[in-house]
């Protein structure tokens, strides 16, 4: 959205990780309309149409979450860690760009779930005293490297103040 968007992209393996997460999420969500249909079949006489609508909604959601959204997220999500600040851009419909001065960084965390770990990915979380920001799906090495980098840069800027 600005001509000088942040330079770094997130790891392309994120596409696979998000695809699998989306599919898994879909299976879990599918339990709701299916149990509705089961109840309808064996216990009460409920209108079947709502079960089918439910399945359709879940299907659309999964297509979005597993296929479309990751592509778009991939395209817009950028970050750049400079000496004095962290610059993050994210979003699909609403593109948000955040600037965090190094001196304001309170702490940095990395975190990953089972799917992310399988692909060797991690999310980097940067917290200031007032806000929380994250860069999703970096390679694990990259994440811990950045974590160290931010921590040391943040310390340097603290000394400046």
């Amino acid at each position: 959205m600005l001509e000088n968007a942040p330079s770094e992209h997130i790891d392309p393996r994120a596409l696979k990780a998000w695809f699998i997460t989306g599919i898994l999420e879909g299976f879990v969500l599918l339990l709701i309309p299916i149990s509705y249909l089961v109840l309808d079949r064996y216990f009460w006489d409920l209108p079947v149409i709502w079960g089918r609508v439910g399945i359709a909604v879940v299907a659309i959601y999964v297509i979005w979450e597993a296929l479309i959204a990751p592509q778009l997220r991939m395209r817009f999500w950028r970050y750049e860690i400079r000496e004095n600040e962290i610059d993050i851009q994210r979003g699909i419909f609403i593109i948000r760009r955040t600037l965090i001065p190094m001196g304001r960084v309170q702490h940095v965390d990395t975190e990953y779930g089972p799917v992310m770990r399988y692909f060797g990915l991690a999310t980097l979380r940067v917290s200031t005293a007032a806000t929380d920001h994250s860069i999703p799906a970096l390679s694990k090495e990259k994440a811990s490297e950045l974590m160290g980098e931010i921590a040391s840069l943040a310390r340097v800027s603290d000394e400046d103040v």
């Binding site: 959205m1 593109i95 948000r96 955040t98 965090i100 304001r104 200031t128 920001h133």
Partner: peptide
């Protein structure tokens, strides 16, 4: 603490943005 600018599809079309500044204020920001 951090500055955020954002724009949705329509805002982008007419060159508008939203600016958001966060400050520390207990208990949270």
């Amino acid at each position: 603490q951090s500055l955020e600018m954002s724009s949705n599809l329509f805002q982008r079309r007419s060159n508008l943005s939203t600016i958001k500044a966060s400050v520390l204020s207990s208990p949270s920001g």
